[in-house]
């Protein structure tokens, strides 16, 4: 098992490098002086006054060299030492910027994905078991409808109904002004997490349904039925377990999509997380900050994929022997 996990991690590294290379080269193409985002502002102000020093610093930092591979590897070296550079907008180290927002985003993502799984998979199973029933059509139609509605529309409707009209929940932010306690945080979490959960649950329902139907129609389920097993047992023990593997895959695939949903959700609910930071960084064209965000999300997405792989290995021991080879 350990060797399997290690191999999965090793396979991910080139993909992560690929992501950062694409981002790095793209951002280098954007107009603006790269020096501004790579040097401690204290030093920079001093340099600006002296063009000769400025040129020397440029050379020292390798900005006279090709973007790839030279400049890229320099950046990579800094990253490995925990240095992501400075944000031009906040004039603070990017590690600090990201560090102060990552927990909020992780919280939102974990809770909403968890909720999506808890809602989406059972509904998918039900619709498959009751195929062609009114319930099936109803739930399926709802899922298609939700999958066709933009996140921001759902979020605005949710704010309108639950916050503005019913006064049940706050309209946004992580905390009430002046409070930092946990019940307050959870109170603020409910609305954005639910919206994101609903958005992510919709495709999950459709996938789970399709996957369950495939298994339900397979021969061994028919055999199990013909042996006289109780239907609940057939579905619970045999069908669902076998449908689980593709479902794990889908959950892993949902993660990049959920990140995208989180960007918009955070923006509407003024949720002080990475998504808001990304939009700000884009508006201010803050390249080092965007690079940091790409790196962190890339790591998160790949980590989620590895966890999904471990999930397969647990759900289906055959996977460990790597059937692809």
């Amino acid at each position: 098992m350990g060797a399997y996990i290690l191999r999965r991690i090793l396979i991910s590294i080139p993909v992560l490098l690929g992501i950062t290379i694409i981002g790095f080269v793209a951002l280098k193409l954007s107009p603006g002086d790269p020096l501004l985002t790579s040097v401690n502002p204290e030093v920079l102000a001093n340099l600006m006054a002296n063009p000769a020093l400025l040129e020397a610093e440029r050379r020292k930092l390798g900005f006279d060299q090709p973007v790839f591979p030279n400049q890229y590897f320099r950046w990579l070296g800094n990253v490995l030492q925990g240095d992501l550079g400075f944000s031009i907008t906040s004039r603070r180290p990017i590690v600090h910027e990201i560090g102060s927002r990552l927990p909020q985003t992780l919280l939102l993502m974990i809770v909403s994905l968890g909720m999506a799984i808890c809602i989406g998979i059972p509904i998918g199973v039900i619709t498959a078991v009751r195929q062609y029933s009114k319930l099936d059509y109803g739930l399926n139609a709802t899922a298609i409808f939700l999958a066709s509605t933009p996140v921001f529309v759902l979020a605005l409707i949710a704010i309108y109904v639950f916050a503005v009209n019913l006064h049940l929940l706050p309209t946004g932010q992580v905390h009430t002004v002046g409070r930092t306690d946990l019940p307050d945080l959870l109170h603020h979490l409910i609305l954005p997490a639910s919206v994101l959960a609903v958005v992510n649950a919709a495709p999950l329902v459709r996938y789970t349904r399709a996957s369950m139907l495939e298994v339900l129609n397979s021969e061994y389920v028919t055999t199990a039925r013909s042996k006289g097993l109780v239907e609940r047992r057939v579905i619970g023990r045999h069908a669902f377990r076998n449908a689980l593997i593709p479902i794990i895959t889908i959950v892993a695939l949902l993660i990049p999509e959920a990140v995208a949903g989180a960007v918009i959700t955070e923006q509407i609910f003024a949720w002080n997380g990475m998504g808001q930071l990304a939009v700000k960084a884009a508006g201010a064209r803050d390249p080092s900050l965007m690079m940091g965000i790409i790196l962190i999300t890339g790591v998160a997405v790949l980590a989620a994929n590895i966890i999904a792989d471990i999930g397969y290995a647990v759900a289906d021991p055959r996977v460990r022997y790597d059937p692809a080879k």
């Binding site: 080139p14 993909v15 992560l16 690929g18 992501i19 694409i22 981002g23 793209a26 951002l27 193409l29 954007s30 990049p256 999509e257 990140v259 995208a260 960007v263 918009i264 990304a278 939009v279 960084a281 884009a282 508006g283 064209r285 965007m290 965000i293 790409i294 999300t297 890339g298 997405v301 790949l302 994929n305």
Partner: peptide, 22 residues
Amino acid sequence: MRFTDTIMAIPPLLLIIVFVAV
């Protein structure tokens, strides 16, 4: 195919935001 894997691992909206900013 390796290049394809890489592109697919990036959250689409995020990458689009980066490129549009550029």
